[in-house]
Amino acid sequence: MRRLSLFVFLTGSLFSCNSIPDQFGKLDLKKWRGDRGGCNGVRATLVPDFRAEIQNLKGKTTNTIGELLGRPDINQIADRNQKFYIYFLEKGSHCDQPGVKSNSRSVAIRMSAIGLATEVTFQNGLP
């Protein structure tokens, strides 16, 4: 009986894992994640949908943001254990020469010291 209970628990645990969604409200996450660095021009077309979901991104954990939007193009450390996840929205010098400072449009998500998204800003280059 104990083995059967353990088997049911482990099997249930394996199948209860959620897969990464392809949509977040209006935002097509599959397209967003597929345009690393915004170098293919797809993210620029998704900006209105991204803006519509800003309030829903706030309060999400660092891990959740990473799962939804993919690995950030730049992970910038800030004061007091805060960090920024930066995603470029358009092609720029960062596409042809990785590591080179870019002034392309980007979005920065500020992550608090406890790992929650607190602010979303748009700018040229880095915040």
Rank of each mutant, 00 (worst) to 15 (best):
G115Y: 03
R51M: 02
A108S: 15
L57A: 03
L69F: 13
S112Y: 08
T62A: 02
S112A: 13
I74L: 14
L89D: 01
L68F: 08
F84N: 11
D79M: 12
D49C: 06
E53L: 02
T64A: 04
Q55K: 09
D79E: 15
K91Q: 15
T45Y: 02
R71S: 14
K101F: 11
P72Q: 09
G99V: 02
R71Y: 14
M111L: 13
G70R: 12
V47M: 00
Q76L: 14
D49R: 07
V42R: 09
I86H: 08
T61V: 02
H94F: 10
Q76D: 14
K101Q: 11
L116Y: 11
N63D: 10
I77S: 11
G70Q: 11
S104T: 01
A113M: 11
I86G: 06
R80N: 15
M111Y: 06
F84D: 13
F50E: 00
G115H: 03
L57D: 00
A44V: 02
S106D: 06
N75L: 11
T61S: 11
Y85A: 06
N81E: 14
F50A: 01
T64I: 04
L116Q: 10
A113T: 12
R80Q: 14
R51N: 04
G66R: 09
M111R: 05
A52F: 04
V47K: 00
F84G: 08
G59M: 02
N63K: 08
F50M: 05
Q82N: 15
E67Y: 07
G41C: 05
D49A: 15
M111F: 08
Q97V: 15
D73F: 11
R80S: 14
Q97D: 14
I114A: 12
N103V: 04
L46Y: 01
S102L: 05
Y85H: 12
R71W: 13
Q82K: 15
R105W: 09
G92D: 03
A108D: 14
N63A: 09
I54C: 01
S93P: 12
P48E: 02
R110S: 11
R110Y: 05
A52L: 03
K60V: 06
I77G: 03
K91M: 13
L69A: 08
G115C: 01
R105E: 07
N56C: 00
Y85F: 15
